[in-house]
Amino acid sequence: MSLEEFKNRNIGKQNYVKLDLEHTPQTPLGRFSRVVRRTLKGELFVGLYVTLREMINALFRGEMHTVKYPLEKLPISPRYRAIHDMLRLLESGHYRCIGCGLCEKICISNCIRMDTRYDENQRKEVSEYTINFGRCIFCGYCAEVCPELAIVHGGRYETASEQRASFSIFEDMLTPVDALKQQKEYDGFGAVSPNADENIKKTPLAY
């Protein structure tokens, strides 16, 4: 790659239209005629027209941009990364987290911690789980790495609180049992890709 190409590598086809920048007139007459030309060209009135048009659009055609935020909220993208949700299994209602610790490992701001133990049913139980939202940068790696689709980013972006602890307890992030039916799968980071089946090789099973 030549230097020229290298420098221009992001410019695409270079089919830009250049601004018609006329030379500044040097004579008083030239300047005067420019004023006259510009005045009569009506550019100023185009400006007036545009603003008036927008005002009419806004007032009478319902094209107002303003969202009265606390009263009305825009729907957020499923890929938005706000306060985490911990999902449950739809069948049993048991939380999905298996305590593998991958989110804890991958967390680049080191804000996830969990305690696990060997429970009475010979399973790994997550006895404690917290995310320190004072440190969390909402990068989404935890949701990305989670093998069980258990930790996801929810849509709860209003994170002002008197106490950070208000968000960070496992139970708070967990889908309430009675809201299990409303639980949605996460479409953003770490969600199963649409073509996942194509990428999986089948393992033979003998039964």
Partner: peptide, 9 residues
Amino acid sequence: VLAFMQRRL
């Protein structure tokens, strides 16, 4: 007026 012309409230 300025707000309306900028399509604000």
